[in-house]
Design a protein around this nucleic acid. Structure first.
Lengths: 158, 158
DNA sequence: ATGAGTGCAAAGGCTTTGCATTAGG
DNA sequence: CCTAATGCAAAGCCTTTGCACTCAT
C-alpha cells in the first residue's frame, strides 16, 4: 500500500487542538482571536483575503490579523497565496486540510477548493519531479489553479 | 511529425511584428521603450517583476513600465501573474509564446518556464473542465506551478 | 501639428511596524 | 506578575494617476 499522504482530519475540535499544539511549541498563545481566525479559514473551505477574515472574526483588527497570519505561517498552519486577483489570500496548510487545488473566477476573484483524481495527482507529481530534476530543482510541491468564470458572473454579465 | 500545438514562433523579428500588429489595431505606437520591454520579456523566458524589466530596459521608468504593461495586457500581449512571492510578475501571453508552466524556487523566487507532455496537458484539461462544470464554472485556462528549491539555493544554503 | 507616450511627483491601497495598553497563563 | 497579544496610528512599499513635456507619425 502506497504511503498516501492525503486526507488529514479537519473536524473543528481536532483542528483547534492541532493548531494549539503547533503554537504551544514556541511560546504561542492560542487566544480567542486566533481561534476565530482559524475557525474562519476552516469554515470557508477556500482561501480568504484579510478583509474576509475580519468580517468573519470581527474582534481583531486587520493589523492583528496580519500578525497572526504571519505567526501561523511560520508554524506551518497557514499558507499565503498570491491568488488570481491582486490581494493576498490565506488558507490552512495542506498539513491540516490535505492536498487540494483551486477553481478561481477571473471576474470576481472568488475561489473554491477542488480535488483532483488520485491517479492524475500521482502522474502530475511524477512528471513535475522529473522536470524539476532536469532543471536542477528539488521539487517540494505543486500548485494548480483552474481559472474560469463562476456562475454568478457569467449570468450577471459583470 | 505530430501536430503538436505548442511552439509558436517567437524569434525576435516575428515577435515584434506580431506585437506591433496587435498594437496598431487601436492606435498604439510601438515605441523603442515598448520594444525594449517586449524584448526583455522574450529574452528572459520567464516571468519578470517590474524591477527586473527596468534593469533590462533602462530607458523607461517604473511608472511607464506599469503603463505599458497595462496596455499590452489589454491587447493580450502580456499577462500578469501573482507569482510565488509578493511582487507582481509579467510574461508574454501564451498566444505569443505558447502554453507552458513554471518552476519556481521557493527560496529566491526565481522562475523558469517548463512544458508538460502533451497527453498530460490534455488529461488535465479534461478533468479540470469537468470539475469546473460541476461547480458551475466555465473553465478558460489553468495555471500549474511546480515549487521547489533551485540548485543555487540548495547549494548556497541561503 | 496633434495626439500618444513618458517622466516626475503625488496619491492610493494593502501590509507592516512602533509603542502603549490589555490580557492570557 | 510577566510576557505575549492587540489596537491604533504612522510608516513602508508597490502600483496608479495627474500633469506637463516630448516625441512619433
Amino acid at each position: 500500500m502506497p504511503p498516501d499522504v492525503h486526507e488529514p482530519d479537519l473536524h473543528p475540535p481536532d483542528l483547534h487542538q492541532d493548531v494549539a499544539a503547533r503554537l504551544a511549541g514556541r511560546d504561542g498563545r492560542y487566544t480567542g482571536s486566533r481561534r476565530d481566525l482559524i475557525q474562519a479559514l476552516a469554515e470557508a473551505g477556500r482561501p480568504l483575503t484579510v478583509d474576509e477574515i475580519v468580517e468573519r472574526s470581527p474582534r481583531q483588527r486587520p493589523s492583528s490579523v496580519y500578525r497572526n497570519l504571519a505567526v501561523f505561517e511560520a508554524q506551518g498552519v497557514v499558507r499565503r497565496l498570491a491568488g488570481v486577483g491582486d490581494l493576498a489570500r490565506f488558507e490552512l496548510t495542506e498539513a491540516l486540510v490535505g492536498h487540494h487545488h483551486h477553481l478561481a473566477c477571473q471576474t470576481c476573484g472568488a475561489m473554491t477548493d477542488v480535488q483532483l483524481p488520485h491517479d492524475l495527482e500521482v502522474r502530475l507529481d511524477e512528471v513535475l519531479t522529473q522536470l524539476a530534476h532536469s532543471e536542477g530543482f528539488t521539487l517540494s510541491s505543486h500548485e494548480l489553479d483552474a481559472v474560469g468564470v463562476c456562475q454568478a458572473c457569467s449570468e450577471g454579465e459583470n
